[in-house]
Amino acid sequence: MGAYNEELSRAGVLLAGEGLHPSSKGARVRFADKTRAVVNGPFVESKELIAGFWLIQARDLAEALEWAKRIPFDEDEVEIRQVFDAEDFGSRAHARTANTK
């Protein structure tokens, strides 16, 4: 992953990126009207757990996809989302990984 991140960095597209601890160290907050229920991890019932994310600057979806395809994963899944921009022509794409259990 170091080499991949280095490639992103050399191409000037990497804005941020973090790996996340397992859900056993995390918690969730569930909203229902005015109540807030806190549920501690791990979340074994989940089909997908987010394990990390990259924030990259890409000109369009095709470029974001191209960078995502180069992530050195053997399995798992990576989802690409665009950061909302008021003018909607800032073209920063937001890739985050969703690890399947």
Binding site: S9, G12, V13, L14, Q57, E87, F89, G90, S91
Partner: peptide, 18 residues
């Protein structure tokens, strides 16, 4: 014109890494 700004920032980061 945001795309030119983004390209400028990207080139700046390329130079910073090289």
């Amino acid at each position: 014109r945001t795309p030119l700004c983004e390209e400028g920032m990207r080139l700046g980061r390329v130079l910073a890494s090289l």
